[in-house]
Design a protein around this nucleic acid. Structure first.
Lengths: 157, 157
DNA sequence: CTCTTGTCGCGAACAGTTCGCAGCATAGTG
DNA sequence: CACTATGCTGCGAACTGTTCGCGACAAGAG
């Protein structure tokens, strides 16, 4: 979805195409990562310095309602992170060591949907899959009890 | 895990087996659902009226560190929800309509682990899978534009 | 029983998010 | 184009969930 299409889309749905909303949307567009509202606000400010934090929140809430954006709460962080709602679904690999968040596309989410469709009777809307652990890099140089095929007990010193 | 084993486990790990900790653990034990810290504190109070909210937080943080408990942030809610960390993994089906949280055990999490083991190089620790949508009951009487493969709700699992 | 020190209860602080309101600007209308 | 109704905004204050700092307390080792 392009930034140019936003104004029309907003009007079509009975909302106004305002400067703050455009700025928030553009900020979401130019970084595909997962941004904190604060980070987002920073980027918004570089376009529209007058935009208030509360307006960023309001815009995000609206975008979510319209299915344009999506919030994800990753792991231990207090703040939510936002991204545009891509049609191609993905999941998150959060490294507990370096803190890196890998934004991963794959067939996993598809598999989840299929699994649910097969008899659960649950009509899935959004699938939030977050895996915490160690990324390839961090797993390489430190290996605090390798987690291979045998399913590890939950607790681990 | 039984409540009686907690004191020893705590001492073995160099912590003290205190009244508040026991109370928090018992509160987690007797309700397998996902409890807000506030809800949890309420239950704790029924056992130990003097226990402070801050202590509930501290106990939970400790239990998490020891791998005994786990926090999950479901959907839109501001507050985190806690549960004991079962070895048998499960995922959450959150109904956007009735708000019900189905605590579901299945092979899905297993599948995710297998998928990741196969070449991603990511060493998975915890897998957080949350699916929002409509539960069988709610999907039955209202159907506001199905997003995925439309599938009439059958019986509940 | 005594002593050490990890833990607690308390209240205040903090971070993230939302609210209420007066004024502004968008977009539909003449 | 100007005019107008009202949806949005910026602001600051309020709120919620969580954490911190401190003196007092009690767990548990000797």
């Amino acid at each position: 979805m392009d930034a140019d299409q936003l104004p029309q889309l907003l009007r079509d749905r009975g909302h106004r195409a305002t400067r703050p909303r455009r700025a928030v949307f553009e900020a979401l567009l130019d970084d595909h990562g997962h941004l904190t509202v604060e980070e987002l606000a920073e980027r918004v400010h570089s376009r529209q310095p007058s935009v208030n934090l509360a307006s960023v929140y309001r815009s995000l809430a609206l975008f979510e309602e319209l299915g344009l954006a999506r919030e994800t709460r990753l792991g231990d962080e207090g703040a939510g992170r936002w991204e545009l709602a891509h049609p191609d679904e993905h999941f998150h690999l959060v490294c507990v060591e370096c803190g890196n968040i890998d934004h991963h596309q794959g067939t996993l989410v598809e598999q989840v949907r299929e699994h649910l469709a097969g008899g659960h009777g649950f009509q899935a809307e959004t699938v939030d899959l977050t895996v915490t652990g160690r990324c390839a890099d961090c797993a390489g140089h430190t290996s605090p009890e390798p987690l291979t095929s045998p399913r590890p007990a939950t607790g681990r010193p």
